[in-house]
């Protein structure tokens, strides 16, 4: 039986309005898009203010941890972006955030994304998959070497072609996964429309 819940009807309307874009841009899609962006922005502001109060202001006032003032003030400096005269102050907040992010990620990024990956590429050469990965990493990297003249002659040319096919296979797999993801995301809405809204199946 078709749902009598107004919330379900609103959700169904927005689902259909958002989907209508696949045929062409239209006012219903625009309305859904703007509503979504507005709601997301509103939620985000409310959420962050609540968090600031819960994690920053309350412990500072109740437990007397006044060091929390430092990140709060640094965060507030970002709003100087809106002043032409004092825009330079915003750089302190942004610089601190960037520095902190880089500091936290740099060591791990080098280890996990570079050293560990390099090790994983060259060590397990005891299986067909390991050998294929090893060959395609080398030939794939070779494909992007443009500064050395010799890569245009044999046998480098053949190796770069192998690398190119490896890259194409990877891109194909990535495309297939993307299609599957998009379908996976939409099928939840299909089930919602057919089951929860129209009540056509239990």
């Amino acid at each position: 039986m078709i749902s009598a819940d107004p919330g379900i009807w609103i959700a169904a309307f927005f689902t259909i309005a958002a989907t209508s874009y696949v045929f062409r841009d239209n006012p219903a899609f625009k309305f859904a898009e703007h509503t979504f962006v507005g709601c997301a922005a509103g939620y985000s502001v409310a959420w962050n203010l609540t968090q600031l109060q819960r994690v920053g202001l309350t412990p500072m006032m109740e437990r007397g941890i006044y060091t929390y003032l430092i990140p709060i003030v640094l965060g507030l400096t970002v709003y100087f972006q809106y002043s032409t005269e004092y825009r330079w102050i915003a750089r302190y907040g942004v610089a601190f955030m960037m520095g902190q992010g880089i500091g936290m990620a740099l060591r791990a990024k080098m280890r996990e994304d570079f050293i560990m990956q390099l090790r994983a590429t060259v060590t397990p050469l005891d299986s067909a998959l390991g050998i294929v990965i090893f060959i395609l990493v080398i030939t794939g990297a070779l494909h992007f070497v443009f500064t050395v003249k010799r890569v245009e002659s044999e046998p480098f040319r053949t190796l770069t072609i192998i690398g190119r096919y490896g890259i194409l296979v990877a891109l194909g797999a990535s495309f297939g996964n993307t299609v599957m993801t998009r379908l996976g995301q939409y099928q939840g809405r299909m089930i919602f429309l057919i089951r929860d809204w129209l009540g056509l199946v239990a």
């Binding site: 560990m116 990535s174 993307t178 998009r182």
Partner: peptide, 17 residues
Amino acid sequence: WLSMMTSSMIPYYQAGQ
């Protein structure tokens, strides 16, 4: 994660991370 992320994340799995 989403399937479309697998091709970028699978190296971490293959490396045992």
